[in-house]
Nucleic acid binder design. Sequence first.
DNA 1: ATCTGTTATTCACAAAGTGAGTATTCACAC
DNA 2: GTGTGAATACTCACTTTGTGAATAACAGAT
Lengths: 179, 179
Amino acid sequence: MGGRQRLPLEQALLGFLIQRPMHGYDLHRRVQEELGEVWYMGLSNVYGTLKRLEEEGRVESALSPQESRPPRKIYRITPTGERSFLEWLHRPVPAIRDMRVEFPAKLYFFRALGLEGVGELISAQEAACRERLERLERKSSRHGPRDFNRLVFDFRCCQIEAILGWLRVCREQFVGGEP
Amino acid sequence: MGGRQRLPLEQALLGFLIQRPMHGYDLHRRVQEELGEVWYMGLSNVYGTLKRLEEEGRVESALSPQESRPPRKIYRITPTGERSFLEWLHRPVPAIRDMRVEFPAKLYFFRALGLEGVGELISAQEAACRERLERLERKSSRHGPRDFNRLVFDFRCCQIEAILGWLRVCREQFVGGEP
DNA sequence: ATCTGTTATTCACAAAGTGAGTATTCACAC
DNA sequence: GTGTGAATACTCACTTTGTGAATAACAGAT
């Protein structure tokens, strides 16, 4: 099955391109340095994603010839791309499983770009988590203790509760701290 | 990439077959009833897995003709299959992400089969989680606060801490309670 | 008449990303 | 001198796990 979008990869690339135009190879190196320990991304994947982004009009490219080396293809983010990135950035992640990498990536870009509004993002994410938590608690309560489904629901509940705690720490760190 | 095994599906089927021989259609219905709200499993997937299990000698089948309906193929677990299932059952899950479904499945089967040794499983799982937690804490500490990698490591740490709490609840519920 | 359930099987397809292969030229090591 | 690796770009076959539809054949319900 799917359902999962490869949103975060696209958005991460846009997030770097918003800082300055770059070519694919460079982009890949930057991503490796900044996010790489936790978020591996193959070179071919970067090139493929850039191609798609260009077809969608979210980035545009220009060739910059070099003596001796293959010409660089410098990618620049378009206004459309910038809008799409900022929209993504301020929107809480839709699924709990995206909290692990995609949400921290948002926090990272808020800081890297010096943007305002982290507090709102965190609040919205908290609200989304709390809603999910309530729904799961309701589902859980329909099963007896030690029932398999209940175990899984309770497991997920405890994970979300921990996330809510972690989000409070994030707020302390990201809202109104030193830059 | 993968790395993920489809272990749990195989083992779940074995776990039901250890209770009594069944045909695929029936097995599918049972799984749906018992685990289905949380763990969806297509019919074709069940048949495919049974076929593989048979090739590997972990189950064997016998046809049981019916008037009018297609003949049932009754699967029975073999000693090899039983050994493989029990081994799996007592082994803690190797990755944290398997805690969500695979581990509760183990608890479920301990109870459904009336087996001893849940306490040991839970202890081993706690130990595995604690080890993972320490490794992650060490990795986390190599990054400054608000660094992306650190955020993700800390996130994972908080998830594992919550799991350790959840495991304590599991122990209370599953060890030495009424059957 | 048609649909749904029983029972079994097969297969094309999906998604997402990896890794290898292809190109080219320079720099550096041995 | 020759090989290796870095810089730069691109393509593509393949992996994995599983879904959903198609196919078959017949019973009983509506």
